[in-house]
């Protein structure tokens, strides 16, 4: 009897092993990339009282590879990544890929299209968009 339970346990153990092999640990180092559309950069939108900041992961892109368009509170970031494999080398592994992407956002508030700042640093695009005057919070004094 014991040996049978052992067998069952072992079987479940094997299944767990298989699951981990196939899908990785739920919180393991591969899980970060799971569910991501590979060609779309990950982004953050941070809101402050007077501006928004968009951050986007764009490793290997120079500023010439990126295009940013703003119309009202509609923002579009597009880019093209090229991978130039060095010549005369054998390729052992190629996980990074050339692609082009386009992501668009509707910002929660109107922004001042004259005061937009874009900085590319260490493979991350930081986009600072000042809110338009009407979108800023106003202090109301009680009479």
């Amino acid at each position: 009897m014991f040996s049978r339970i052992n067998d069952i346990n072992r079987m479940f153990g094997t299944m767990d092993l298989l699951r981990d092999r196939l899908f990785g640990e739920p919180d393991g180092p591969f899980s970060y990339h799971r569910g991501q559309v590979p060609s779309l950069p990950k982004t953050n939108l941070v809101e402050n009282s007077d501006h928004f900041e968009i951050q986007a992961e764009v490793p290997g892109l120079s500023k010439e590879d990126l295009e940013i368009k703003l119309q009202g509170n509609y923002l579009e970031i597009s880019g093209t990544r090229s991978i130039d494999s060095p010549e005369g080398y054998r390729v052992h592994r190629q996980e990074r890929s050339a692609n082009s992407f386009s992501r668009s956002f509707t910002l929660p508030d109107d922004v001042d299209d004259e005061r937009v700042e874009a900085v590319l640093k260490d493979g991350i695009l930081y986009l600072t968009l000042a809110k338009s005057e009407t979108a800023k919070p106003k202090q109301i004094t009680i009479n």
Partner: peptide, 9 residues
């Protein structure tokens, strides 16, 4: 800094 409307990374 600030509050995140969304955070993917």
């Amino acid at each position: 800094k600030g509050k995140a409307a969304w955070r993917e990374f």
